[in-house]
Simulated assay, not measured.
Amino acid sequence: MEHLSIIFNVIKNLVTFNLVAVQKHEWEIFQGYGFFFLVMFLSIVLYTYWYHLYRVEKTGERNYEKYANLALSDDINDSVLENKRSA
């Protein structure tokens, strides 16, 4: 509970640009929790994106093997991978 009040005080001081009031140990606690939540957020985003790619491949909306072969068949006379309508 003490750490929660420290985090809110640091956020309040950051918003009001009163950085002199933030002590070193408070800043270290804020950085530790911030790093933890950033890693958790990025992990959730990564696994959500992975699931999206997996689901789109399984439902047949997109075939990513064509994109994997794009580097091998990169000639001027090769066919277009996807026909998209123009804007």
Rank of each mutant, 00 (worst) to 15 (best):
L46C: 12
E65M: 05
N77H: 07
V56Q: 04
W50R: 13
K58Y: 01
S73K: 12
D74K: 10
K58G: 00
Y64L: 10
G60I: 01
E65P: 00
N77A: 12
L46F: 15
Y67G: 03
L72M: 08
T48N: 11
N69R: 15
Y49T: 12
Y47C: 11
N63A: 01
A68W: 01
N69C: 09
E65Y: 07
V56R: 09
D75H: 10
L53Q: 05
K66M: 06
K66Q: 10
Y51W: 15
L72E: 11
K66D: 09
E61M: 04
E57A: 15
E57N: 13
L46D: 07
N63G: 00
N63D: 15
T48L: 12
Y47R: 11
T48V: 07
S73D: 05
N63Y: 01
Y64T: 04
Y54E: 05
Y64M: 06
Y47P: 00
Y47D: 05
K66C: 06
D74P: 00
G60R: 03
L53T: 02
L46N: 08
T59H: 03
T59F: 02
Y64W: 13
R55M: 08
T59I: 13
A71C: 01
E57P: 00
K66I: 14
Y54H: 13
Y51Q: 14
N63C: 04
V56L: 08
R62K: 13
R55E: 10
V56N: 02
R62Q: 08
I76L: 09
A71Y: 01
N77E: 15
R55N: 13
E65D: 10
Y54T: 07
Y49S: 12
R55P: 00
L72P: 00
I76W: 04
L46T: 12
H52N: 06
Y47A: 09
A68D: 07
H52Y: 14
A68Y: 03
L72T: 10
N69F: 11
D74R: 11
D74C: 10
H52C: 06
K58I: 04
D74A: 14
K58N: 03
V56A: 02
D74G: 08
Y47G: 02
E57S: 15
Y51D: 14
Y49Q: 08
I76S: 08
L46E: 08
A71H: 02
Y67L: 15
W50I: 15
N69V: 07
Y67H: 10
K58C: 00
R62V: 02
T59V: 13
L72W: 05
E61R: 07
W50C: 08
L53S: 01
R55V: 12
G60T: 02
S73E: 06
L46W: 13
D75R: 13
D74I: 01
A68T: 04
E57F: 06
R62L: 12
A68G: 03
D74E: 07
S73F: 14
N63T: 01
R55Q: 11
V56S: 03
D75E: 11
K58S: 02
L46M: 14
Y54G: 00
L72F: 11
R62I: 01
H52S: 05
L72A: 12
L70A: 15
D75M: 06
A71K: 04
V56D: 02
L46R: 13
V56P: 00
L46I: 10
T48F: 09
S73A: 05
Y49A: 11
A68Q: 08
L46Q: 12
K58A: 02
T48A: 14
A68N: 06
T59L: 04
A71D: 01
